Amino acid sequence: MSVDTHPDTDARAGVDDLDLQLADDELLDEGSVSLFEGDEGGLEYAQRRALVTLLKQRFISARTHPRDWSVLVEHERLIRSRLNDLFLDLQVDRAREVAWKRQATSETGSRFPTMLYDAAWSREETLVLVHLRDRLRAGLASGDARVFVDREDVVGYVASFRPAHATDVAGDEKRARNAITSIVKAGLLIGTGSEERFEISEAVEPLIPLELLQELLEALVAANDSEGTPDADEPADLFDDTDDADAEVDADADSAAVTRGPAEEQ
């Protein structure tokens, strides 16, 4: 998903989706798990597709990937075992119908080989995520089945954390708007009929644990109160790295940071 769409790209995506649907229908009719010459895999086509989707995407949900979610729920143990073979751990929130993967950590805390790459969210992206989680929880607590947010509301929230010494207002706003675009591409903001209004994905809450939220806000406030002024051209990560493996978001996360998670396709 993206805020700005391109007709040619959208048209191509529609054709690709149709081709994939036709391929799915053809392969799903096959009774054997052998899908190509020399195939020694033990998963059926739908199970393999769900596994591949989990590897490519930051998360899947009943809403974003209904068929893959259905297969995952039915064959969770089998798909989990395949991820475990890759040193990945499957996280499933059945209440919110969201599933995601993260890097597994050994019992001794040592690192396993990994095929994933973690990149920290920027300061502005982290603020957007914190705000979305807060708005989602408030909306659901009020009985809303779906929670929406306006672009300007998010931009205003990010601006409220601007340090008193910051003078590049235009640059800060641009980074805030770019952060929203990144969150849309990550699938955590869902487009509506208006380019200025989004639905907050149910995946936001499980991907940002409650115990991490307060630490994020405290770190943001502390950073704003510090004497150092960050380079406006380099919105570096707001948080320092730590070895705390208990607080994780999607893939590995620091105790006071949110990471993008693995380098899935955009």
Rank of each mutant, 00 (worst) to 15 (best):
M1S: 02
T5P: 06
H6P: 04
D8E: 15
D10Y: 11
A11M: 15
L20T: 05
L20P: 02
Q21F: 13
E26K: 04
D29T: 11
D29E: 14
G38H: 14
D39A: 07
E44R: 06
Y45C: 08
Q47D: 14
Q47I: 06
R49V: 12
L51E: 07
L55N: 01
L55F: 09
S61M: 07
S61D: 05
A62C: 14
A62G: 15
A62P: 10
H65N: 12
P66N: 13
D68C: 13
E74L: 12
E74N: 10
H75N: 07
E76R: 04
R77N: 12
L78P: 01
I79E: 01
L83I: 08
N84C: 07
D85I: 09
Q91I: 14
V92K: 01
V92I: 15
R94G: 10
A95T: 15
E97A: 13
E97D: 11
V98Q: 02
Q103D: 06
A104K: 02
S106C: 12
T108H: 14
G109R: 07
R111E: 11
P113C: 09
T114R: 00
E125M: 11
L132C: 07
L136P: 00
A138M: 08
G139Y: 05
R146V: 08
E152I: 12
A159T: 08
A159M: 13
A170S: 06
K174C: 08
R177N: 02
N178W: 04
I180E: 03
G187W: 03
S201H: 04
L207S: 01
L216K: 01
L217P: 04
L217A: 12
N224S: 14
D225T: 12
P230L: 12
A236S: 04
D241M: 06
E248C: 08
D252G: 01
A253S: 15
V258S: 04
V258M: 15
G261A: 09
G261I: 10
P262Y: 00
E264K: 00
